[in-house]
Design a protein around this nucleic acid. Sequence first.
DNA 1: GGCACCGGGCTCTGCCATAGGT
DNA 2: ACCTATGGCAGAGCCCGGTGCC
Length: 383
Amino acid sequence: MASRFKAIIGLHRLFSLQKAFKCVTVQCATVFPLQRFNSVTPNENEPKASVNPENESLLENLNLLGVDVKMARQRQPGVFRRVFTNEQCLAKFLQAKGASRQTVASIISRYPRAITRSLEYLEQRWQLWRNIFQTDEEIVSILDRSPESFFRSSDNSKLEKNIAYLSSLKLSNKDLHRLLATAPRTFSNSLELNRQMVEFLEDVCVELGGTGPEEFAKAIISRNLYVLIRSTKRIKANIDNLRAALKLSDAELLVLLQGSGAKILDLSNEYLKNNMASLQERLLVLGCSKEDVKTLIVGYPMVLYIGATTLSIKLDCLLKGGITMEQILKKPKVLDYSTQNVTARLEELHEIGYNFKANGIGILDLSQKRFAAKIEKLVTSPD
DNA sequence: GGCACCGGGCTCTGCCATAGGT
DNA sequence: ACCTATGGCAGAGCCCGGTGCC
């Protein structure tokens, strides 16, 4: 794999060469309209780019490509004063990879700096991504989703090192793929930033008396692909808040974090705190003990992922439907499903006179298929 | 066959602030 | 003075089915 990256060296030299000669990227010269060179004076003695007016021919090119110039200008105005840009080349490159005209336009509109990248950069970066993705289509769809993730860093060797580092963690290929597909920003982080997070997680494990820090970090990242695009400050605050609010022992916290608790670690600090506070308040009013609150959160941390308003509506819906808080505490997974879904099911079950007291509420926590089959059975043979 | 348990799948960008470079 | 690269932030759930036990 490493041999494929060797070509990266020399990129900067080439790029600065282009700058020095005030010359467009050689391989794309043909796609540039000649007027690009007439409209600007490529003279070293001219004032710096900072006082350059907007590049007229660039504007023209962008309009031809269907770029939302107004949006682009608002996002990165500096790009518009650059004398040399690579928009035609970029468009050609992306279209060759299967991107539609609209996709290209949308990419440039949302991340204009993309047009400052050279063809070498594009080819190398694409290749690096292809080491993780099987097809160009996959990459195109991610670029369409998040152009910034691909283009924000101008240094391919950093990306290469970063991939090597992430691969060196014991993450499976599948996880690596999911990581880049789901949270592409992870790969445009600096290696140092990713390393800091991994080491932070390992430290947490050791501090809590865990014996497998690498496994611990891996488990958390694999369960929550967004952790690496958060600050250690945020993750740390969430861990501290959980520990303090729930008065968890080290061992309990260790289990929680590398289990289903990993899912809530990337939430914003205030959001998690608010959710915890309002959940506790609500449950206490409903007659639960503090111990109940703790059991609920430890057993089903995703309850904290649900916003206070949504959760409140969901609880109301269940309680109004004849479900007791005790039943919910015993089977919190019913909170997993949308209020809409639960409401519909409750109605259906009421119609056929379903007895929650006798049969429990497990029926609410079934896949649509299983639920339908169950209803079918209840209707046809109601004994 | 029916149930509970459990884990996994999908998914997440677009903007702002700022250090550092020219 | 201006630009680029990079860090960081807010935003806010739902669904499915394998497996093993009875």
